[in-house]
């Protein structure tokens, strides 16, 4: 008998509030691969690794450490579903493990709310947990309807992989983790020219991210894929809703469905498109659904 592995899910605000279909997809698919999610109360925004970090790094580290404390008190490791949350919580864990003086400053503040950060739990994006702890064979075994012939443009985004020294996920120049997970459900991962280009979302000069997103969508369009597959709600925001804006701005029609990996896994496990909330997307994936039906 294999033991069920337990993790504390940290969905973050983007998924819980804006894209709850991703939360539904994760919850419904993970129960089928032997991962138990133990929900804990009291989490706040991670806080976000772009704007909040740019405002006051010490406060950013402190609020992140408070979130880590909640899992520490339960004695369970955290798994994240958003690359932003992964970045904030992993960076915080790393910095506080390597800088005793900084940890002391953070704990001084945490004392005000009766908490102390010790550094006893790990933080890993759920795809990393799947590959390293659960095992890709379990993903394969959970598939009842392989997505044979489905061509998926892989999009990693920046914060799952970098800084590689801190994230410890994969080679940031030649990552394979998402390809392996897509192959596990029968899909065909497709490379495109701009697959490691940043979407530019954090840049405060609006023309630059628009041009970057346009270039990525153009690069995908050339490959004749059924969808783009990704693992981060912020990237999703840039390409789903963002795709409509880019189509208008550049007077080029794009209709590339953007799908969160766990929604694809759900389809392969026999869940309906509604079960994983595909009906809530801006770019409707009808041709894709016809193909996998």
């Amino acid at each position: 008998m294999s033991e069920e592995k337990k993790y504390v899910p940290f969905f973050g605000c983007m998924i819980s509030v804006k894209y709850p279909q991703f939360e539904a997809a994760v919850r419904k698919t993970m129960s089928k691969v032997g991962m138990t999610l133990v929900d804990l109360d009291g989490f706040t925004c991670c806080p976000d690794p772009i704007y909040f970090k740019s405002s006051d790094k010490l406060t950013w580290l402190t609020i992140a450490a408070r979130n880590l404390c909640i899992a520490e008190e339960a004695g369970l490791d955290i798994t994240t579903m958003c690359s932003g949350c992964t970045a904030t919580l992993s960076e915080t864990r790393y910095h506080l493990a390597h800088d005793e003086a900084l940890k002391k400053r953070v704990n001084q503040r945490l004392k005000k709310i009766g908490k102390e950060y010790k550094g006893t739990v790990s933080v890993r994006h759920i795809v990393t947990v799947l590959r390293d702890d659960i095992g890709i064979d379990k993903v394969v075994a959970s598939v009842v309807k392989p997505l044979n012939g489905l061509r998926v443009a892989v999009h990693y985004g920046c914060h799952l992989l970098k800084p590689s020294k801190i994230m410890q996920v994969d080679d940031p120049d030649r990552p394979t983790i998402l390809e392996r997970l897509l192959e596990a459900i029968g899909a065909e991962p497709v490379q495109h020219d701009a697959n490691l280009l940043c979407c530019g979302k954090a840049c405060m000069e609006p023309d630059m991210p628009a041009q970057m997103t346009f270039d990525i969508l153009t690069s995908i369009k050339r490959t004749d894929v059924d969808c783009m597959g990704l693992i981060c709600p912020t990237c999703f925001d840039a390409y789903d809703l963002g795709q409509i804006k880019i189509s208008r701005q550049f007077k080029t029609k794009f209709d590339i469905p953007i799908i969160y990996y766990f929604q694809l896994l759900g389809l392969a496990q026999g869940l309906s498109p509604e079960d994983v909330g595909l009906n809530m997307h801006k770019i409707m994936p009808e041709p894709l659904l016809a193909k996998v039906a």
Partner: peptide, 10 residues
Amino acid sequence: ECTNCYNCYE
């Protein structure tokens, strides 16, 4: 104008 992509860090 930095996009926070972390390529420079790498």
